[in-house]
Structure formats: C-alpha cells, structure tokens
Design a protein around this nucleic acid. Structure first.
Lengths: 210, 210
DNA sequence: CGAGATAGTTAGAAGCTATAACCCACCTGT
DNA sequence: ACAGGTGGGTTATAGCTTCTAACTATCTCG
C-alpha cells in the first residue's frame, strides 16, 4: 500500500534530517571545512559509507544545507513582513536570524568556492527574499531620481519585472548591501575590540536610505 | 660572514616565497579548502614533508597568506591615498585590488573559521587601513551630528584615539561597511544575472555619505 | 678540518572521501 | 504463499590528505 511506501520514505526523510542536524552542529562548531561525513555517520549510529545512501557526496550534503539555509532565511523574512515589519523590522529579523547561527549566514553570503555553482532553486529563493525587500521599500513611496536609478531602469529583469519605480529598486538594493556590509563584518568579528553597537550603525545606515 | 648567513636565509626566504606563490595559485583556482601542502611540495620540487621545514602546519601557511593579504591591502590603500585619492579613489583602488584576486579579499573578509583567531599584527594593519579611510573621510569636513556619532564619541578607542570628530569616524565606518557590502556580494556572484553595474552602485552609496 | 645546524629523504600513523562487493530484511507482484 | 527485486546496512579497500619519526647528506661556521 501507499502507507508502506511512505513508511520507507518517512524513515528515509527522518534519517536525512538527522544527518543534517548533526551536520549543522559540526558546522556551527568548527565551520564547513571541518564537516566530516565519517564523524556524522558514527553520530547517527551507522558506520561510514552507509551515509552515502542518503547523500551521494559531501558536496551534495552541503548543497542540501545551503538550500535549507536559503529556505530558512526566506521564511524568516516572509514571516517578519507578514507580522507587519518595515525595513527596520526586516533588518532586525535578518540580523537575529544571522546571529542565531553565523555559519548558516556565511553558507549563503560567505566565501564562494570558485568552481561551485548554486542550484537554480536557491536563486529563485533569493528573488523571493528580494521581492519582500522591495515590498517593504515601496512603503516609503517613490524617491528622488538618481543616476543609478536611471541605470536600473534598463536593468530591472532581476526584480522579476517588478513594477516598482526605479528609486524603490535602488532603495531595496541599498538596503540589502548596507545591511550585509555591517552584518557580515560584525559576524566575522571585524568589529571586535571597537566596542560600538552594530545595531545602532545599522539603524543609522537604514535611516539614510533615500 | 654575514653574507653567508644571509645566503642561507635568502634561500630560505626564496623557497618560502615560492611555496606561497603556488599556494596563492591553488587558492585562486579552487579556494582555500583545496589547498594541499603535498601538491605544493611537489610543484616546488620537494617531496611531501620537506615543506614542513618552511611552514610548521597548513594553518601556519594560511596564516602567512592572510598576513600578506592584509599587508597588500594596506599598501594598496596607502599608495592610492598618497597618489591623491579621495573616498571615491580609495573605493576604486580597493575594488580593483579585490577583483584582481577575489579569494585574497575573502581570505580577509570572508567566512571566519569559528576557532581561528587572527594574529595580533593583522589587526594592527587593519587599523592602518582604517587610519587612511579616516584621513580621506576627514577631507569633507565635519558633518551633522547623529545619534550614532554621539555613541561613537564614547567608543572611539578603535581609531587609535584618532582626533577626528565623531561625524568623520561615522563616515569612515559607513564607507567601509557600504563598500564591503556591495563588493563582497559582487565578488561572491550574488549580482549574477542582475545585469547592473556594481561600480555605479558603489558611487551612489558613497555619494550618500554624510 | 671537524662539528653542528640545516635541508632533504623515506616510512608510516591516523584521518578523510568515495567505491566495490556483499548480506539481509522487507515489500511487492504473480 | 512464495520468489525476486529493492533498498539499508555492513566490511574491505583505494587513494588522498596532514603530520611525525627516523635517518642521511650537505652546507656553514669556529
């Protein structure tokens, strides 16, 4: 019966989730380079190569984790927006999400591996996030025309042909890059010893959005 | 004679430089994770463990590369400033430097390894870079008082007790975070398919500095 | 010239990814 | 109800990695 089929599939999904749980723990503790399939296999109670029944390779496991990270980010952003967050609230939500697991943030926005190309669907999720940002940035209405805005007018395909005026697209892009600028430096520890509060800097950076 | 002493030492320095050259090539090609001491050793013509006479471990080699990257960045920034560059010129110089070898940029500003702590002198070089940024940001004179500026007033130790007014410190900090925000996303390929020119966005971001 | 530091070698331990070959249990179709 | 395919698990093994140990040869310096 289909119940039996799903029994196997549910087991399979559960084991896959278990593997990913331990993988996240290893990554959070020592970063992606320290992720060992062997160690994970032993932790979930199977020995070595059995894990390859669930993930064809180390890269495939990492790709699955990247996909989950994107999904988690998009859900977080969507939820914050649905709860009525504006640009400030979104920034807060994203920062909290990133600080909860910095390595997860860096899995998306950290050092790229030269050969590696992210799967198609992750870029789709990226657009999903960007759409929410544009939505929130449209709240403040149109803005003053800028050279870059005019440039964007001719390069707006990335927004999925979003009907927002160029000033709004510009604002969304600035929101993204400014937040990432502060956040990634904060998470990487480059503000260590400087003593100031990154949250205040972010607030100020967003206040300057035109 | 000192010449003989330096003969050995010069040889040693030359071999170390050779090793680092090949290491950079590997990193540029496939990222830090793919860096293999064995492969490098064979490339420079020695077999395996001989390389450990020059670098005590893989981590020590990478640390040396990080140090060189910091040094190179600081020199680039200093040179641009000495050639009369303002904030725009500095941004241009840094972007060119980063695009010449993205992995070198990410060695400094990319994903941090949870356990790893950069050696003291690299933070000193960081301050060196920051000093140049502050210098250039001071050119535009004082600025309007901001809440974050006031906050910085009580947390300015990081600038080495730099006598710049808080608005200037704020400007330097924003310069750094905004440039990094755009640049790191560009280098990581997150603008791929969006089609716009990152340089224009950077220009606009810097024009918005108050 | 002799003595010690230094550069290099090979051998090997421990760990990793990944493949191959094999076993066993369960699920399914006749 | 039973035979056979499928899928989860095992051990063995190849080939890679970092890194240590032990040993040799060469080069430098008193």
């Amino acid at each position: 019966m289909t119940e039996n089929v799903s029994s196997r599939e549910r087991y399979r999904a559960q084991v896959r989730a278990d593997i990913k749980r331990h993988a996240w723990a290893q990554i959070a503790a020592a970063g992606v380079p320290a992720l060992s399939l062997n160690a994970i296999a032993k932790q979930v109670g199977m020995s070595g190569p059995a894990l390859y029944r669930y993930f064809a390779s180390r890269d495939e496991l990492i790709t699955a984790l990247i996909r989950d990270a994107y999904r988690s980010l998009a859900d977080t952003v969507r939820a914050a927006r649905d709860a009525g967050a504006g640009v400030g609230g979104l920034a807060h939500a994203i920062r909290d999400w990133a600080r909860a697991d910095p390595q997860r943030y860096f899995l998306i926005y950290g050092t790229p591996v030269p050969g590696y190309h992210a799967p198609e669907d992750t870029t789709a999720i990226s657009f999903e996030v960007m759409a929410v940002l544009i939505e929130a940035c449209a709240e403040t209405g149109d803005g003053p025309p800028t050279p870059f805005g005019a440039h964007l007018e001719t390069h707006r395909d990335w927004a999925g042909g979003h009907p927002a005026p160029p000033a709004v697209l510009h604002r969304a892009l600035s929101f993204w890059t400014r937040l990432h600028g502060v956040l990634s430096l904060e998470l990487a520890g480059h503000f260590a010893g400087m003593g100031f509060d990154p949250d205040l800097l972010i607030t100020e950076e967003l206040a300057g959005l035109r």
